[in-house]
Amino acid sequence: MFDEELENIRREIGARLRARRKEVGLRQCEVAQALGHTSSSRINQIELGRMRLYAEELP
């Protein structure tokens, strides 16, 4: 049960991140660069709900 809830939360956060990113006109690689990542794959995985977004990355 807990794993399913966590999965749903990750998907919701990912969807919200994707919506906001598109709303402000950014590409995944631009978000990744702003967070100090070398590629957009982490952002892609977060948006798909497969990877956790850490609190430090939220601002």
Rank of each mutant, 00 (worst) to 15 (best):
M1G: 15
F2R: 05
F2L: 09
D3L: 07
D3Y: 05
E4T: 12
E4Q: 11
E4C: 05
E4A: 13
E4G: 08
E4R: 13
E4D: 10
E5T: 05
E5R: 11
E5P: 00
E5F: 06
L6A: 12
L6D: 04
E7V: 04
N8P: 01
I9R: 10
I9K: 13
R10H: 09
R10G: 01
R11F: 07
E12T: 12
E12G: 05
E12M: 13
E12Y: 06
I13G: 02
G14F: 02
G14C: 02
G14D: 01
A15G: 14
A15V: 12
A15I: 07
R16N: 14
R16P: 02
L17D: 06
L17C: 15
L17R: 11
L17N: 06
R18E: 12
R18S: 10
R18W: 00
A19F: 10
R20D: 05
R20F: 15
R21N: 09
R21K: 08
K22I: 09
K22M: 14
E23G: 10
E23V: 07
E23Q: 15
E23D: 15
V24E: 14
V24H: 07
V24R: 10
G25P: 03
L26Y: 09
L26N: 04
Q28L: 09
C29N: 02
A32V: 04
A32G: 07
A32Y: 01
A32I: 03
A32E: 00
A32R: 00
Q33T: 15
Q33R: 14
Q33K: 14
Q33P: 00
A34M: 15
A34G: 15
A34E: 14
L35S: 04
L35D: 01
L35T: 01
L35M: 13
G36I: 07
G36M: 02
H37W: 15
H37M: 13
S39P: 01
S39E: 06
S39I: 02
S40Q: 10
S41R: 13
S41I: 09
R42H: 05
R42C: 06
I43W: 00
I43S: 00
I43K: 00
N44M: 09
N44T: 10
Q45L: 09
Q45D: 14
E47K: 00
E47I: 02
E47Q: 03
E47C: 01
G49L: 04
G49C: 03
G49E: 02
G49Y: 01
R50C: 07
R50Q: 13
M51F: 02
M51I: 03
R52D: 04
R52P: 01
L53C: 01
Y54D: 02
Y54R: 12
Y54L: 12
A55H: 03
A55M: 07
E56S: 10
E56K: 09
E56F: 07
E56Q: 07
E57K: 01
E57R: 00
L58M: 15
L58Q: 06
L58K: 04
L58A: 11
L58E: 06
P59Q: 03
P59A: 08
P59H: 04
P59D: 04
